[in-house]
């Protein structure tokens, strides 16, 4: 049976239907990535799965005793709140020093324990967030735009790390990302979301699906073209390429 299965899920926020009739499942050891345009309900879906939003309809079934490790999209620490990396790892439950050190080592950082969270670089901060999620020995790791604010090299390294961790602790991974090019390489399965599930399957299948092309571009302008499009040239006021 799946670790987690969602069926007929609908979510309304402030009278707007954000998600309707969403069905998906995640199996053990699987890396599933949700892609979709802005406002397609990716974050809403993850937040509903972790329990931050109540669904209007539908159900979310978790395997019994499923441990979820959650890495949120934004974590803005108010500068008036002093908190060390070590203390942060104690939330929500206190952990022993060895476990904390182990989690930090797993994400490839060392000697960060006594540093303030606000002093960390973007990459270090994301790794600490990930370390905190790993401490509960999760069966399922949920990441919401975990590479926001990282450069391409940084995010590629981060996805590589996720893959390594999956192999180390045998967890499944559900994540949301904008970065189609890296995501496609790092995922076992891709779910294309736009209020509902447009299409899903292996990365290559999804890229060639008409629903996916309708959202992200067609023909040779698939995932790779979109990536180049975003980063290698600019547009003039009429939208023509320069």
């Amino acid at each position: 049976m799946s670790l987690l299965s969602v069926s007929d899920l609908s979510v309304e926020l402030a009278g707007n239907t954000i998600l309707h009739d969403v069905a998906l499942h995640i199996d053990r050891r699987e890396i599933v990535t949700i892609v979709g345009p802005n406002g397609s309900g990716k974050s809403t879906l993850l937040r509903t799965i972790v329990g931050a939003i109540k669904p209007t309809a539908g159900s979310i079934k978790r395997e019994s005793k499923l441990a979820i490790g959650y890495v949120p999209q934004h974590l803005r620490i108010d500068p008036t709140l002093p908190i060390t990396v070590r203390r942060f790892l104690d939330l929500p439950k206190p952990v022993c020093g060895a476990d904390a050190a182990q989690a930090l080592k797993q994400v490839g950082t060392t000697n960060l324990e006594s540093r303030q969270l606000t002093e960390l670089s973007g990459g270090q901060f994301q790794r600490v967030l990930l370390a905190r999620a790993l401490i509960g020995k999760p069966d399922l790791l949920i990441l919401d735009e975990a590479t926001q604010g990282l450069d391409q090299l940084g995010s590629a390294a981060f996805y590589q790390l996720i893959d390594t961790i999956r192999n180390e602790i045998d967890c499944a991974v559900l994540m949301v990302s904008h970065e189609l090019h890296v995501v496609m390489a790092a995922s076992d399965r891709v779910i294309c979301l736009n209020g509902h599930v447009c299409c899903e399957g292996h990365p290559e299948q999804v890229v060639s699906a008409p629903e996916y092309r309708a959202l992200f571009g067609s023909g040779t302008q698939g995932a790779l073209a979109l990536y180049r499009h975003e980063h290698s040239h600019s547009h003039d006021a009429d939208g023509n390429c320069e």
């Binding site: 937040r47 972790v50 329990g51 931050a52 979820i68 959650y70 949120p72 999209q73 934004h74 974590l75 620490i77 709140l81 908190i83 942060f88 939330l91 929500p92 439950k93 949920i142």
Partner: peptide
């Protein structure tokens, strides 16, 4: 204390922890 602190850091983290 722990619930207050977790909620203050990030509400979604609190939800995910069952607070």
């Amino acid at each position: 204390w722990r619930a207050l602190l977790t909620s203050t850091l990030n509400p979604d983290l609190a939800y995910a922890a069952g607070f």
